[in-house]
């Protein structure tokens, strides 16, 4: 629809006020065409963020696991090796988005504090270094590599990997929330917080799954408690996000996508595994049954984490196409 000019008596030119208030009613749009550009991000960026969250969570898990308890010793090793594999593989996922491998290197010619993407890539690179060092240590302790090589990874590498991991998980949220996208911007606190929680829940799920395969049931017991805490925190953040984002949150919380997010991320991806994990904490099930229980809970959590990231990105696309939201940027 063409825009009708306001009544000539209106002070419509006062609309650009620098104090943040519109004097005039609802803004016109330009034929309802989008004012912003939608992200060009597909499954590869979704996967990159999802794996970034898991890597981050594994960073914490490898620090928490105590080397003097047998089950945790094995968990530490598993977490370190897995995190290193993910850290080494994640650039490959990003490269499928960039087109050519050497394009990844373009990001290593500069460190830019103002760019979450730049900091995040450096976080990923440093994380790979720390995780790699810790894997060398594991292999040296096990005697796979010469024993002296464990000195290549001094003790501070464990907390270093955890800190870098926290950053990696957090940045996957800031990457979205610190943009011009109205929906993402409306979650400037919630999206980063949810990313950290979801990252840790998914990491615990993956570690439980692997520990179950290894038959390390004691570690699974602890991991599932961690997963429950992270999942509960994620639910709280998402619930508050819904409240705080208001109309900006519509593309994420409502319609088909909202339905899907609620089903896969909140219900099947968080509440159901929480119930299964709680069951595991309270009842001593026979080993094979328990293994199935853990497997189901872990897979559900992982799927939920992926759907969360996917829904965030897809909702961002819709939000960018909505000129009403774009004109009324969240503060």
């Amino acid at each position: 629809m063409p825009n009708l000019p306001p009544n000539p008596d209106d002070a419509f030119l006062g609309a650009v006020s620098r104090n943040g208030h519109h004097e005039t009613p609802a803004a016109p749009t330009y034929y309802d065409r989008p004012m912003l550009k939608a992200p060009h991000w597909e499954w590869n960026v979704v996967t990159y963020l999802f794996l970034g969250g898991i890597m981050g969570g594994l960073g914490l898990i490898q620090l928490l696991a105590h080397p003097e308890r047998d089950d945790e010793r094995r968990l530490k090793r598993t977490a370190r090796i897995t995190s290193f594999i993910l850290a080494a593989g994640n650039p490959a996922i990003l490269i499928t988005h960039l087109g050519r491998p050497e394009r990844f290197l373009n990001m290593l010619r500069i460190v830019k504090v103002k760019s979450p993407m730049s900091l995040g890539v450096w976080g990923l690179v440093l994380y790979s270094g720390a995780a790699g060092a810790n894997v060398v240590r594991e292999l040296a302790v096990d005697g796979v590599l010469p024993r002296w090589m464990r000195f290549l990874a001094p003790g501070f590498m464990a907390p270093a990997q955890a800190l870098l991991g926290a950053f990696t998980a957090g940045y996957t949220g800031v990457l979205l929330s610190a943009t011009a996208n109205p929906f993402w911007g409306s979650g400037k606190r919630h999206i980063p917080a949810a990313s950290v929680c979801s990252g840790l829940a998914s990491a615990s799920a993956l570690a439980s799954l692997l520990s179950t395969l290894e038959g390390n049931h004691q570690a699974v017991h602890k991991l599932e408690r961690l997963e429950m805490v992270a999942g509960a925190a994620e639910l709280l953040v998402l619930a508050d996000f819904k409240r705080a984002s208001g109309t900006y949150g519509k593309p994420f919380f409502e319609g088909k996508r909202g339905e899907r997010m609620r089903t896969y991320t909140m219900l099947a991806g968080t509440i159901a595994p929480m119930a299964l994990n709680l069951l595991g904490q309270m009842v001593k099930l026979p080993k094979p049954v328990d293994a199935v229980r853990t497997t189901v809970a872990s897979v559900l959590t992982l799927v939920g984490g992926y759907v969360l990231r996917d829904s965030l990105i897809e909702a961002g696309k819709d939000s960018a196409r909505d000129p009403h939201a774009a004109f009324r940027q969240p503060r």
Binding site: A166, A169, S177, A178, R189, P192, A193, V196
Partner: peptide, 8 residues
């Protein structure tokens, strides 16, 4: 964003 992530 960074503050919220750090808090979490």
């Amino acid at each position: 964003g960074y503050a919220a992530a750090a808090a979490a």
